[in-house]
Design a protein around this nucleic acid. Structure first.
Lengths: 179, 179
DNA sequence: GAACGTTTGATGACACGTCAATAATTCCAT
DNA sequence: ATGGAATTATTGACGTGTCATCAAACGTTC
């Protein structure tokens, strides 16, 4: 005996799906048009731009982004071919590898960020008032919490605690917003 | 001069992104595991199950789902190879074609729906109280409205007005929820 | 120090989605 | 009726993402 969705629940689910479809595709389309980057590209570049030496271990990056190692590896390969990032060996652990932001990649993310933020504002943030922003945050964080501690936005590894790069979004400092 | 996101806005955007990532991947994973269907598969089957003769014109379906014609054509081809749907000619317009639900497809969607609804409840709907459901709906519909009338969930074509299949979600009738 | 299981990444096969180009039919204006 | 534009659908090339599998290096245990 299935517990079907009520009309209100159905409506919420449909609105959610449609919103995500529209927002994501609009933001992605504009990012591609303005900067020649895909959303995944942007997220990788942004994560690297937040890192100390503009480099991260593949696994660390994959965990942080909630990507499969395989996905990241594939994507890094493709980005490498466009000179946005490079791989570098890790001297302490020969299995491991770094992904490093190239100058090209750094310029690309710096150039892309303002238009991207504009785009996010246009299609989501600026459409909502203060209460709605708060509601969205609270709903989002509630859902995220349900998936457990592994899924926090900032699963900062033990040995990484104390770094403060993340706070730097709205200031004009070196890390570029992963917005 | 870029209008960067404030801390609150940044937090909302990050929570939104992460929520979408987690919910979508969990629901998709469970659907694939339980029913051997992808989300796109489910959406196509569900849309067809809502149609009068379990069939729809390709273009009509593409518009309704907000998919590109190309995407739908590709996907239908793949689904056809798995015997979930078939193509049929349209006698009135020789350019046109129907996609038709096969018996296999019909059985597949009927079997998949309960688990899928369970999954949507587990990872989103049941996590939220009544107010939050209402807030999510209102936020979603506000955003959808921003994208214009073309993007309504139910861009019912003129000649289709009056059909009532959509109302039938929570009842146990023939159309299967597109949830 | 050899054997075992674990961690870290890479890879191939395949599903998915977009874009641009194509073909066939229909519609419409003359 | 005919020629040009619009509609409908398909296709190929390519970028993207997943899953299963593999290989190499590490670390621990005996």
């Amino acid at each position: 005996m299935t517990n079907w969705l009520s009309d209100d629940e159905q409506r919420a689910w449909r609105a959610y799906r449609r919103m995500v479809l529209l927002v994501d595709s609009a933001v992605a389309r504009e990012l591609a048009h303005d900067a020649g980057l895909s959303m995944p590209d942007y997220l990788v570049l942004s994560a690297l731009s937040e890192a100390a030496d503009h480099r991260r271990r593949l696994t660390e990056l994959a965990v942080r982004m909630q990507w499969s190692p395989s996905r990241l590896s594939h994507h890094v390969t493709r980005m490498e071919q466009r000179s946005l990032v490079t791989r570098a060996e890790c001297s302490e652990d020969l299995r491991a590898a770094y992904v490093v932001l190239t100058d090209t990649g750094w310029e690309a993310i710096k150039a892309a960020a303002p238009d991207h933020v504009r785009s996010v504002r246009d299609h989501l943030i600026d459409l909502l008032d203060e209460d709605e922003i708060a509601a969205l945050t609270s709903i989002g964080e509630k859902v995220i919490a349900h998936f457990g501690a592994d899924c926090l936005d900032r699963p900062v590894p033990r040995d990484d605690v104390g770094r403060a790069d993340y706070a730097a979004q709205s200031a004009n400092r070196s890390p570029v917003s992963s917005s």
